[in-house]
Each structure stands twice: as structure tokens, then as C-alpha cells.
């Protein structure tokens, strides 16, 4: 039995009839046409599908679209303002934090959550903060460097919107 879902992705409202079994990542890619969110593993290990749902990073391959009904989503496509890259995107570029680029959108979204909760993380905290995102190209060396660089830039007066700790849980 199909269900009507509506959600806001990067500020745009989407509404569709979907099968309950439709995974959120497939909704985002196929119904909303936003293909920057990737699928890498199917078992919620690799993090390539990481997006933000109501301010929390989630693996969109392990959420049903119906569970996101009414939610506010942010995907990699929503980070840049026009051609102005988000500091994390800029830092990944500057620090050579990507090679094939397949894991990159999820990695950046995970890093964004990390910095929202911990604006000045240590190397170890960065490594633990992205432990749910696998990269096979970079050895993570330049990813960690990029997150350090972005933290510095964002700490130097760039806006910081997300609260440092979790808001009370979203239930609708």
C-alpha cells in the first residue's frame, strides 16, 4: 500500500506516493533527482549515503522514506551557496581530501555533524567522528587534515548554526 510522503530537501518541498519499503537514499536519488548521495554498502557500514535529517546525520540507506515524512533534510547538494563552497567542501578541495570522490559527499556530511557538535576537535576526535565513513583512496590522511582546516576556518567567525549538543529528540 503506497503512502504519501512529503519532506523538505535543501529547502525545497517534495511530495510523492511511495512504497513503504522505499529507502530514503533511493527517494533522494530517484524521486528528488539528487544523485550526490551515494550507496556504498547496504549494511550501514560505509557512510557514503550520509545526509542530515532534522539536524542529525543519518545513513539514508538505513531509513525508509516513510520514516522521513515531514522531515527537513540536508544533502551534499545543499551545502554550497551558489558557487560559494561550504568551508568543508573548500577544505576537502584545498587539502586533497578526495581522490575518486565517491565517498566524499557522505564524508563531508559526517564531518559537518562532527564540527557542529565539537567545533574544535582533536585529531583523535576527528578520526572517531568519521569512523562510520569508509574511504578506500586517501588513507584518511588528507581527510583528517581537511576537517582540521575547515574547523579552523569555521571557528574564525564563520557562522555556526547547529547546536553543540543534540536538541531534544525529533518525534515528528
Amino acid at each position: 500500500m503506497r503512502q504519501r510522503v512529503s519532506m523538505t530537501i535543501n529547502g525545497t518541498n517534495y511530495e510523492h506516493e511511495v512504497e513503504p519499503r522505499l529507502l530514503l537514499v533511493h527517494y533522494i536519488r530517484e524521486q528528488a533527482g539528487l544523485t550526490g548521495t551515494h550507496v556504498g554498502c547496504d549494511t550501514s557500514n560505509c557512510g557514503a549515503c550520509t545526509i542530515e535529517m532534522d539536524g542529525h546525520s543519518v545513513k539514508a540507506c538505513t531509513v525508509f522514506a516513510v520514516q522521513a515524512n515531514g522531515s527537513q533534510l540536508l544533502t551534499i547538494e545543499g551545502l554550497a551557496q551558489g558557487t560559494q563552497l561550504h568551508p568543508l567542501q573548500q577544505a576537502f578541495w584545498d587539502e586533497h581530501g578526495l581522490q575518486c570522490g565517491y565517498c566524499t559527499p557522505g564524508m563531508i556530511m559526517a564531518a559537518r555533524q562532527l564540527l557542529a557538535r565539537n567545533p574544535d576537535p582533536t585529531e583523535k576526535e576527528i578520526r572517531m567522528g568519521i569512523e562510520g565513513n569508509l574511504c578506500r583512496c586517501t588513507g584518511y590522511h588528507n581527510i583528517v587534515k581537511a576537517i582540521q582546516a575547515a574547523a579552523k576556518v569555521m571557528g574564525e567567525g564563520a557562522e555556526r548554526k547547529a547546536p553543540a549538543t543534540a536538541p531534544s529528540a525529533r518525534r515528528d
Partner: peptide, 12 residues
């Protein structure tokens, strides 16, 4: 290569 890839505009 990177501006495409960091913004989710890559084409796999």
C-alpha cells in the same frame, strides 16, 4: 576534478 565531486555533482 574536485569542485564537481565535493558538491555531489559527480557523474558515476
Amino acid at each position: 576534478e574536485d569542485p564537481q565531486l565535493v558538491t555531489g555533482s559527480g557523474r558515476f
